[in-house]
């Protein structure tokens, strides 16, 4: 049940706020911020690939990575950061789900079973 709540919270999480306004940044800070967003997108991509290999990827992760890339290309760094952060969170949640399920799936076998206490 705790796992279900965690996933629900992550799935429903809205765009993450980051401190400061892009407009108020110095040119150097702006470049640094862009690089930071690219790093988040790249990390989200890597985690998504990891989830795919586990057969546990979520559709929303792909959608959010795509959204982050589009916003980045359009110069919307803040929007790109929000989408990339959510993509990363959802990718991490899907990997967590895979790990969790590998441990608990047997709990769902029919309760009438006499054979389910083993294994």
């Amino acid at each position: 049940m705790r796992m279900a709540w965690l996933l629900l919270i992550l799935a429903c999480a809205g765009p993450m706020e980051i401190s400061g306004s892009a407009d108020a940044r110095t040119p150097e800070a702006h470049v640094a911020h862009n690089e930071s967003v690219q790093t988040v997108i790249q990390t989200a991509r890597q985690k998504f690939q990891q989830a795919l290999k586990l057969d546990y990827a979520w559709r929303v992760t792909a959608d959010l990575i795509s959204e982050a890339e589009k916003r980045m290309a359009a110069g919307d760094t803040q929007g790109a950061h929000d989408a990339a952060t959510r993509a990363l969170l959802s990718a991490e949640a899907s990997i967590l789900q895979a790990e969790h399920e590998s441990r608990v799936w047997r709990e769902r076998l029919p309760k009438t079973a006499t054979s389910n206490v083993k294994k």
Binding site: L7, D55, S90, S94, Q97, E101
Partner: peptide, 11 residues
Amino acid sequence: YYSRRGQLNFA
């Protein structure tokens, strides 16, 4: 069959 998956967490 018995593992939950996806954002909705269903098996």
